[in-house]
Structure formats: C-alpha cells, structure tokens
Design a protein around this nucleic acid. Structure first.
Lengths: 205, 205, 205, 205
DNA sequence: GACTAAGCGAGACGGTACGTCGCGTCTTAAA
DNA sequence: TTTAAGACGCGACGTACCGTCTCGCTTAGTC
C-alpha cells in the first residue's frame, strides 16, 4: 500500500482535494532542489533563499506554495513517501515484523529522509498544524500498516488477539526513533531481529 | 541516583573536571531567565537577546558560557535534571516499571522539560557534539537506572535473565518519545500501566 | 562649474556610468538622515544604526548602498557638493582668489561639511579606495577651478606664467585645512584677504 | 630645540608639572608596544586590548595613564617628538626653509609619525581637549621654530620684515598636510625646493 | 492572431537576531 | 599598594534570512 497522495503546498493545510492535482514543473524543480540541499547540508542549513537559487526560481514562487522551510521539508518528505510502498510480506509474522523494522531503519539511516526527520521532529513536536498533517499522512499510515500485519498474524494464529495496533506501532518504531534522535545507539543489521525477538513474547502469549 | 552536576559552559563540551566549579551569580540568573522564557514561549522563540534582556545580563556574558541557544537550553535541561533523583523503588518490579514510565511521561508533559526536549531533539539529532553531551549525561543515566531495576527484578525472580538494559530502555522510553514528538497520541494516566503490561511477557518469560 | 554628480553606492567605487542613475527614495532619506545626524553630533558619533533609525529604514538597506559609515559620510559630502557651484568670478584675480579662499572657509566653518571633513580626513588619509574617490571627485575639481582662475589671470596679465595649478591650490587650501584640522588658529573675515595678499607676490612677480 | 616634555597620561589634560617626571617601566613598555602596533597596522586598527597584550600589561594599567587610544597615540607622538630636535641651520634662509619642509615631509612619509598623524588628525580636529594639548605641544613649537628662522632671515636681510610667523607656518606646512591627508599628490625630493622657490617672492619682496 | 491576465524572475525592502569586537569599569589575587 | 588577569555591561558592528512587496517580462487562454 502506498502513501497515496500529493504533498503540495495546500495539502499541508487542507488535507486532500479528492483527486491528485498534477504537480507543475515549478513544484518539481523546487522539491528536487530542496531534497538535494537537505541531502547536502541537512535541515538546519536549509534556507528558502538557497532553495530558490538552486531551483532557479524566485523566492516568491516558493512562498506561494509553502509557508515556511518546514512546510517545504515536509512536502519533500511526503513526496518521497509516495514512492515507498509498504509491501505486504506474505511470509510468517516474525519475518514481517523484522522486515518492517529493518525497512524503517534503512530508510532513516541511508536516505535523505533521515536528515529530514532529524530536522523536522522538533517542528512537528512544536507546531500543531504541522503535526496534524504529519499524523494524517505518516503516523496513521504506519498504524494502518501494523494493523494489517497484526490482523494477518492473528488470523494465522501467530499472534494473540487483543493487541492494540497503536501500542504495537509505538513498540516497533519508538525504539528506532529514540536511538536515531537521542540515544545514538547503533542499529546494525541485527537490530531488527533482536528487537522483534525480544518483543515477540509480548505479542504471542 | 542523581545526575550529579552542572551545565556550565565547559561542561557542555568537556564532561567534568573532578570537583564541581561553583556556579556564579550570572550563571544562575541566565539559566533562570532561560527556563522562564522556555516555559513561556518554547524553544523555537528562544533568543539569546531575549535571555540577556530577561536576565539583565549582556549578550556577551551568555556567549562567554554557551556557544548557542541550543547549548543554553541543554544547560537548563541538565540543571533541572540535577534535582530529579531516580528513587530506587522497593516495591515489585511491575510497579517500578510503571512508575518509571509514568515519571518520564509526567516530566515531559507537565514541566518545561517537555518544551526543552521538543526543541532540543532536532539539535541533538543533528549536532554530534551536543549529542555526545546529551548521551553522556542523560541517556547513559537512564540506562543505568534501568540496569539497576532489572538486576533487582532478576534477583527477585520477577524478570528473566539475559535482558539487554539498553534494549529495555528503548522499549520503555521509545514509545513515550515517539508519542510525545511525533504521533501525538495521548498518554493518559493509564498509559504507563498499559505499556508495561503489554511488555511484561517479553521481560519475564 | 559644478561637481556634476551623485554619491550613490556604486559611485563611491566606480566613478560614473554615463547617465546619472535616478536616486531612489531610500537614497534620499538616508542621505538626509545622515546629514542631520552629522550636523547634530558629528562624524564620531555617527552610527549606521542611528542613521537607519532616523531614516526609518532598515540597516540592511544602508549596507546595500554604502560599505561603511565612512562611505555614507562621503556620499553626503559629494551630495552636498553637487549644489556648490564654483561660479567663475568676472572681477580681478586678487578678488577672485580671496573669494575662493573665503568661500572654502565659510563652507568648512558654517555648514555640516566642516564636521564631515573633520571626521573624514583620517579615513581618506588611511583608506586608499576612499582616497581615490575623494580625489577623483573633490581634489581634482579644486585644481580644475584654480586652473581656470590662473589661466584667466595670466591672460589678463595679472599673474605670471608658469604657475603650477596644483601647487597654487596647495598654497590656497593647505593653510585653511591646516588651521581647520590642526592648528585651530582662527579664520576671521580678514583671513582670506591676508592670505592672498601675502601670497600675491609669489603669483605675480 | 626640542619638544621638551613628557606626554604621560596627565599631560594630555594638565599641561606640565614643572619638571619632567621620570617615565616608569610600564610607561615605556606601553608606549613601545603602541608604537610598534601603530607601525604595523595603523591607528585605525589600534586597540587598547591589543596594546595591553603586546606590552604584557593589564588593560587597567593603560587606562590608569591614558583615557583612550587617542590619548595613547598622542603620547607616542609626543614621545617621538622628544627626539626630534629642530636644529637651527646656519646656512642661508632659502636652504633653511627647504630643509624645514623636507624634514617635515620625511618625518611624515617615512616614520610611524605619518601613520599616527593620519589617524589622529580627525581626533584632534574634533576633540577640543586633545586639540589643546596638540597645539600646546606641537603647533606652537612649529610656529616658534619658524619665528626663529624668520627673525634670523630678516636680520640677514634675506627676508622682508612684517611677516606673520603663523601665516608663514601655514604656508610651509599647510601644503604638506594637505597633500599628505587629502590630495595624495606626491612629495618627491624636489617638492620642498619647488614649494619654497614658489613662495620666496612672498617672503622677500 | 491579438489581447489580456496570470504566473514568474528578479530583487529591493523593513525587520529580527545573529555572533563578534572592543570599549571602559570593576573585582580578585598575588607580589 | 600596585599590578595582571579577566569577567562584565554595553553599544555597535556587519551578516544572514526572513517574509512582503513591487516591478517588468513571458506565456498561455480567450475572444
């Protein structure tokens, strides 16, 4: 399943307009420039002026679409998530859980998404409007993914019933973000497996 | 056990110089002003000029001690943590775990620490030097707390042996921070209990 | 003959671009504010921030045009000199010389130009770029004035041939500036006459 | 004849205390450091802190003696002038006049005195107290020199009677300072001769 | 096919805060 | 008592970006 939609300027305020509006050339070039700059120097040194220069676009054009650099970064994030399909793995539940964790770890640590998240987390935490969009688009999607996974696991008899999908999501992703943002503890190839194996008794018993 | 010491200028870069240097009057007044302003408007609108004005101190005096507003906020955070003793609870392990979670939730949602953390998380995530101090002072302390708790639990026969304290810490705090920073899901009075009860099978089996 | 043109930002570095660029509203208001402040407190206490405040303009706007307060003061000076036409006097040469001296004395001692010059002289003396502009615009103009005056005097048979206009300028203005800047000796209404009468034998013999 | 005296802190405010007070080691080391720094970077970049550092002396020590960097530079200037004896040349008056001009030119263009004067001229021009000292110590000395020279010339029958020594001083030094500070016109080896030869008819006729 | 109106580039502008410099004052400790 | 050392309040510096605002100049879309 995909994050289904746009992430243009308006979207960050008004959720969705039914059918995906075509993104214009300007939109594209601005988002690309932003992603490049985020990749090069991170969110902290992202400036609207810098994006305008890189994109060969006037500042006005950017402000017409995005209210702030935060909004812009969020748009890039949502734009990138469009392409991240959350394939339902048809294997056993343990493997699926490990895959979900590993995928998230990989996304954070190897793509520009990690830098964006590092920069955006404070903004999302502090700006209700931004938080709203982020939850609408990203958080709820994660919970939906986990819900599907849990239901399948229960159907297979691999998981116990009565699990709260939101809590499970917290338990799967919380440790990742905590390490990624704050503790700095490494997340090697083994991490996903260790996390899930540790958690498993909580999901099966 | 207490976070034992200060957040003076040097500390934020070099851990500790053996015997605690006395904090000067300026230090105190600056930290207080910063905490007040953080409480009033949050990290985002914290400015060094504002702190200087509020503290009745020259900007230079602040810059002499703290390299940036981030450093300043960190100092406030460490300063506040000095007073947060992590009482060893003598009850059963489940209760201790719940208390630990609840205390963290409470600290984040009712004190200025929450605002500081919201503002600081992006900085810690992006600035290695800051991250180093944060881990040295805060993260490691949390793991130490949990280690003590786990050992006592194992000794009592309430927990299984072989638990990785770091992973357990991630599982206890990760969900809290994830909700606090990103998902926005509420953490009511029941939250700690639900979290720990869910996790318990993973710690006992 | 007039000092023909402006003191806009560019001018202070590049002489002239053929046709006078229109001075914008900001230019005007900034120059006026600067002149006022120079008049009130002199060059020493002139600050860019003060000018910005007085002009109701952002500091950046000033820095966009002038690299420093020195540049700004120079612009005011050049701006004022636009209006100082060096009328060709049709009387006898002695009177013309006296008039030239008196006019300079008067300009220095009764207008804000004196304060500007007092503040600027050290800067012009020490900063080659500034010096270049000053010479291009002011010094050379004075020499040109004197040249015209000498030629007419020689044609009239009132002055000897072979006088070096530059040296004559030095002899007419040098004493003025020396008194004005350093010796502090008064320059009363009689001064011009005494100076010229003293010098005359050097110009006629 | 020599500029006869001290130039210590007090001097710049109260003229003279009768007999030259011995200059202390601190005085010496501060003045030397100042002169060095003036020689290296000019008056514009002279700072009290820099002098203190170079002299290995506390800022306080400097402020105890000199009220400002201007005062300090003036002290160096006066200190240097102590060693500049204005030898009475026993040759003919024309030669003496040329020598006087040449000596001044040389002093300005080859020693640190030039740099000091360039920096100080604006201060002297704008600060009455400073001006007072400068005139007391330097200007009046020049006039005195010229007076002696003129008297001898008149006695020899080489100069006309009735010359105003102050005006003559203006005519000899004014052009030098004008070129040195403002016009930038070169003063080659010939300059003194040309100036005096030009002026001579004004002094003899 | 010409005409208009929207969208855009360019960039000037008022503004906030930055982080730095050097000032001149003041306090502390050692000589 | 004088000093070196240096912290401090202070004012201004010059810079970076912000977000807003004209300005023409394309460039479609409509008549």
């Amino acid at each position: 399943m995909n994050i289904s939609s746009a992430g243009d300027g308006e979207t960050s305020t008004s959720p969705e307009s039914g059918h995906a509006r075509r993104r214009s050339r300007s939109d594209r070039v601005v988002l690309d420039a932003t992603r490049e700059l985020l990749g090069e120097s991170g969110f902290g040194s992202l400036t609207v002026e810098g994006v305008a220069a890189r994109a060969g676009v006037a500042k006005t054009t950017i402000y017409r679409r995005y209210r702030s650099k935060t909004d812009l970064a969020l748009a890039v994030l949502l734009d990138m998530l469009e392409d991240v399909s959350t394939q339902p793995y048809v294997e056993d539940t343990t493997t699926e859980l490990i895959a979900l964790v590993n995928k998230t770890v990989k996304l954070m640590s190897t793509t520009v998404l990690g830098r964006i998240m590092k920069g955006l987390v404070s903004e999302v935490a502090a700006d209700p409007e931004l938080a709203h969009v982020y939850r609408e688009r990203v958080v709820s999607q994660r919970v939906a993914d986990v819900t599907v996974l849990l239901e399948r696991g229960i159907a297979r008899g691999e998981l116990r019933a009565g699990l709260d999908p939101e809590m499970v999501t917290d338990l799967l992703l919380g440790p990742i973000y905590y390490r990624f943002f704050l503790s700095g503890a490494p997340m090697d190839d083994d991490f996903g497996k260790r996390l899930v194996v540790t958690l498993l008794p909580a999901f099966t018993a």
